[in-house]
Amino acid sequence: MTRPADHPQQQHSAGPRLLGPAEVRSLADALGVRPTKQRGQNFVIDANTVRRIVRAAGAGPEDCVLEVGPGLGSLTLALLEVARHVVAVEIDDVLAGALPATVERFAPEQADRFSLLHADAMRVTELPGPPATALVANLPYNVSVPVLLHLLEHVPTLERGLVMVQSEVADRLAAPPGSRTYGVPSVKAAWYADVRRAGAVGRNVFWPAPNVDSGLVAFTRREPPAHRSGRAEVFAVVDAAFGQRRKGLRGALRVLAPVEQVERALEAAGVDPLARGEALDLQAFVRIADALHDLRQEGQA
């Protein structure tokens, strides 16, 4: 099947009219909207940027795309050019109330392929419409990591995605073990997916222009490592290991178990007790969590 994006002239003639600086400011003025730092709102005002994001995401006519924080609809309209269905999750009352009318105005032929969920993305566990296969979003920067991890956990049909986040956060999400930016987001994201940097976005494509750089992060879903413990137990080890970064694991993990148990677990997992969290990959954290789990089971026997 030929993707609509492969024939931009044909597609755009019948597709949505995208938002530029004038349209974004006009919509905002009509709604009395002023972007707020509290909700991390920075509206994209460049049509080329949103088309670039959609291309990089690989969204196509078979996809139901989940978008979080659609704002005034810049990325939403670009997604409707190519996707089978778009579900937008918006927490802001005014923006959520206005978005369906914006879609009807700028993309009347695609309006039946759009659904809105007026909700906090951190509380979403079910979505309207067909099962979401891709996440494509300009995530609010102040909650980007918690939102991404929540959706990866609660929307298991997501196969892949591309999100725009603060550049430093993008580095952390995609960081390999041993690197300066490797940490809790890196390990937890790796539990769900293969994650990679997918480019940078300039400040001048936003209104208002943020005082931080932005980056694109792509992910492809995969099964988590084999484990005897649960995800929550693995994540507890990760949190403890990075909670006191200057401590070796023998000291940092004492918040989870007595030091004797920690030492036995690290030995069983084949991990140096003096190593620090940033030196471990996901598999090592799983081995530690499994070893602690086994010791607890022994103690209860």
Results as ranks from 00 to 15, higher is better:
Pro176Gly: 11
Arg196Gln: 14
Arg196Gly: 12
Arg180Lys: 15
Trp191Tyr: 15
Ser186Phe: 05
Glu168Trp: 08
Asp171Gly: 15
Arg197Thr: 07
Pro208Glu: 08
Met164Trp: 03
Pro210Met: 12
Ser186Asp: 03
Pro177Asp: 04
Gly178Met: 03
Glu159Trp: 06
Arg172Gly: 03
Val165Arg: 06
Val184Leu: 07
Pro156Val: 14
Asp171Met: 13
Ala175Tyr: 05
Gly199Lys: 03
Arg172Trp: 02
Trp191Asn: 08
Val169His: 01
Phe206Leu: 06
Asn204Phe: 02
Tyr192Glu: 05
Ala189Asn: 04
Val165His: 04
Pro177Met: 08
Asp171Lys: 13
Ala200Ser: 12
Leu162Ile: 12
Ala209Lys: 09
Pro176Leu: 12
Gly178Ile: 02
Ala193Leu: 09
Gln166Tyr: 04
Met164Asn: 06
Ala200Glu: 05
Ser186Cys: 08
Ser186Ile: 00
Pro210Trp: 06
Leu173Thr: 00
Val201Ile: 11
Leu162Glu: 01
Ala198Gln: 02
Ala189Arg: 03
Arg160Ile: 09
Ala198Ser: 13
Ala200Asn: 05
Thr157Arg: 11
Asn204Tyr: 01
Arg172Phe: 03
Glu159Thr: 13
Lys188Ala: 13
Glu168Gly: 12
Arg180Ala: 14
Ala170Gly: 15
Glu168Pro: 06
Ala189Thr: 01
Asp194Met: 12
Leu162Asp: 01
Leu158Val: 12
Arg172Cys: 07
Ala198Val: 11
Val187Leu: 09
Ala209Gly: 06
Ala175Pro: 07
Val169Arg: 02
Pro208Tyr: 10
Leu162Asn: 01
Val195Arg: 04
Glu168Ala: 13
Asp194Ser: 15
Ala174Cys: 11
Glu159Gln: 15
Leu162Pro: 00
Pro210His: 14
Thr181Cys: 04
Pro177Cys: 12
Asp171Phe: 06
